[in-house]
């Protein structure tokens, strides 16, 4: 009986978060032209990268462990993956804390972290057909990039883990709002650091070897570099090679470590929150 009752509560909660995701989807669908900007921005940025690497590879056969084709594919894959994993949980949480609106979450029978995750799911579902599919097709047909994963199942798992990890890392940044009043600067700093360490701007194999070794132990490479390498079908960083199932397993462990870190940080941060007359 108790089991059935608790199942009912869980079912209701899932229903609630599904509604949050759906409402977020509907809300952002009203601004779909904003999302459609990606159809211009993504290919234009890619075009510049395409010419940069074409020029660079005229002087070399391979660079940083990449051939020209692999390099162009790397940027293509990392661009489309970013549409699936993009996150702004940090901005949302910091805004709620700064304005005091976060107090309303403390009064509701809602866990904010799940609420924020549901929002992200709704937002990214919209992005899937508004950004991911069109840009994916542009890359295939306009640029002739082979965007077919070598191990489709592992690639999907890796992208899902990257989706959660991007959320958890950003949520940590958001939690810093409990300690700081104005956090725009810090947020931008952490985002820049995260993107550099994730391999968004340039593959991590271009960095000096000691830095590559440090990056192995940080969560950032698992957001972009790892899913991109899983998509390509091989992984190596800092002279260390892993098979695809191994690196996806390590990525899953990193997600668990981040869950633990977010939980600890949240418990410390929430004690500092105060909001009056919201």
């Amino acid at each position: 009986m108790i089991f059935l009752s608790s199942m009912g509560v869980i079912g209701k909660k899932i229903e609630f978060y599904k509604t949050v995701a759906f409402v977020t989807y509907k809300e952002w669908a009203a601004y779909r032209s904003h999302m459609a900007v990606s159809l211009f921005v993504g290919p234009v940025f890619f075009l510049v990268q395409y010419f940069i690497w074409h020029a660079v590879f005229t002087t070399r056969g391979s660079l940083g462990g990449f051939t020209l084709e692999q390099m162009v594919t790397y940027y293509g894959i990392s661009s489309v993956i970013s549409y699936l994993t993009f996150d702004f949980a940090d901005w949302n949480l910091q805004m709620l804390i700064r304005t005091g609106k976060f107090a309303t979450f403390l009064l509701r029978p809602v866990t904010h972290v799940y609420f924020a995750l549901a929002q992200k799911i709704g937002h990214r579902i919209l992005s899937f057909w508004m950004e991911f599919i069109p840009v994916y097709l542009i890359f295939i047909f306009a640029f002739g990039i082979r965007l077919v994963p070598r191990f489709p199942v592992w690639t999907v798992i890796s992208i899902l883990l990257s989706f959660i990890l991007a959320f958890l890392v950003n949520y940590c940044i958001g939690i810093s709002g409990f300690w700081l009043i104005r956090t725009n600067g810090l947020r931008q700093a952490l985002h820049l650091f995260k993107d550099i360490c994730a391999g968004v701007f340039i593959p991590l194999t271009f960095f000096p070897s000691p830095i590559q070794k440090i990056l192995l132990f940080m969560p950032f490479q698992y957001i972009t570099f790892v899913p991109t390498r899983v998509f390509i079908g091989s992984y190596e960083l800092g002279g260390v090679s892993f098979s695809i199932p191994e690196i996806v397993g390590i990525q899953a462990l990193m997600v668990l470590a981040m869950v633990l870190f977010v939980t600890i940080l949240w418990k410390k941060g929430i004690k500092r929150f105060s909001g009056v007359g919201i």
């Binding site: 660079v56 002087t59 070399r60 660079l63 931008q188 700093a189 820049l192 701007f201 271009f206």
Partner: peptide, 25 residues
């Protein structure tokens, strides 16, 4: 400082390309 670092993106790529022995012809 962040604005400055964000602007360094293109120079950083240039530096990494040349430090890896490649170049723009």
């Amino acid at each position: 400082i962040i604005m400055l670092m964000a602007e360094m993106f293109a120079p950083a790529i240039t530096f990494l390309i040349y430090s890896n022995g490649a170049s723009f012809p």
